[in-house]
Design a protein around this nucleic acid. Structure first.
Ligand SMILES: [Mn+2]
Ligand SMILES: [Mn+2]
Ligand SMILES: [Zn+2]
Ligand SMILES: [Zn+2]
Lengths: 146, 146
DNA sequence: GAAGAAATGCAACTCAGTTGCATTTACTTC
DNA sequence: GAAGTAAATGCAACTGAGTTGCATTTCTTC
């Protein structure tokens, strides 16, 4: 997503100390195209450093809480994590392949997420919107085995 | 949602026999405003008849598979179930209160879910779209205790 | 009403995530 | 730079929602 980002600085900018594990978790999420499961993040981070499963979950919670990272649901029971929306990286919808579980980002322009919130002069307070398209990815579509 | 529906007929129309448990599960979902967790459905159905937890999950799977019922994710780890969209009951977005877990249906007109699929002449095959707004419901908003 | 099929129940299991507490690492203060 | 404190990490056990395998019950069909 953002190769030139300094993730250490980013961490400190929200009041978190930049430990090796936090920096690697955030970097793994930020440098990946699409969103990731905790198990995938674990695997990637462990190529660089040893990290406990629980530590990863705690770091993910922190990053979400500080709004650096976004927790998304794929319609299954495993959360996905991706960089939170910013002006440079606007919020966007995601596509989820119901066959292989792949979850990828859609072009922010194709489904503008922001304006629609204003169409709801409701009594509740809307904080965020999540849009997910489910279907078959290109691979699973053309390759009906497995 | 649909008080005048005959849920037995609805079950048979998709090739399922209408057993007492299936009819009660479908009726519970269909007559409720908003979407329900399995635990809530279980509680409601058990006021009428005894039913095993596993049986409920199997019935829910069947109803989803036959497209009578829709499985929604609330951003937490528990699925929600509501009637699937039809011409009379069009598909719509849902609001989820991050504080109390309430999940309610939004006016189908406010966020038209259909047309946007056509904006994706992608290589993947889109089967459905899910739109969820997260925030605080009216109660939790005005009542910040608990 | 017997035989076979479908539906339901029950116990054990799985998987993702959480909790409590011990240990290690990073910051302060002297 | 050592001691003391706070924060971060590790480890084991736990939780909650959902699933699986198989036994039992209920519904069909002849
Ligand atoms: Mn994304
Ligand atoms: Mn609904
Ligand atoms: Zn796929
Ligand atoms: Zn609420």
């Amino acid at each position: 997503m953002c190769d030139q980002c300094d993730y250490g600085t980013l961490l400190r900018s929200v009041g978190l100390s930049d430990t090796p594990r936090r920096e690697l978790v955030l970097g793994t999420i930020g440098n990946h195209q699409g969103v990731l499961r905790p198990s995938e993040i674990l695997e990637k981070v462990r190529r660089r450093i040893s990290i406990n499963r629980v530590t990863l979950y705690r770091i993910l919670d922190l990053l979400v809480q500080k709004k650096l990272v976004q927790r998304l649901s794929a319609g299954d029971r495993t959360f996905r994590y991706g960089l939170a929306g910013t002006s440079r990286h606007p919020d966007h919808a995601h596509f989820h392949c119901v066959h292989c579980g792949l979850m990828e980002c859609l072009d922010p322009a194709s489904i503008p997420l922001d304006l629609r919130q204003s169409q709801h002069p409701q009594l509740m307070k809307i904080e965020r919107m999540e849009v997910r398209l489910d279907g078959l990815c290109q691979t699973c579509r053309s390759h009906p085995d497995v």
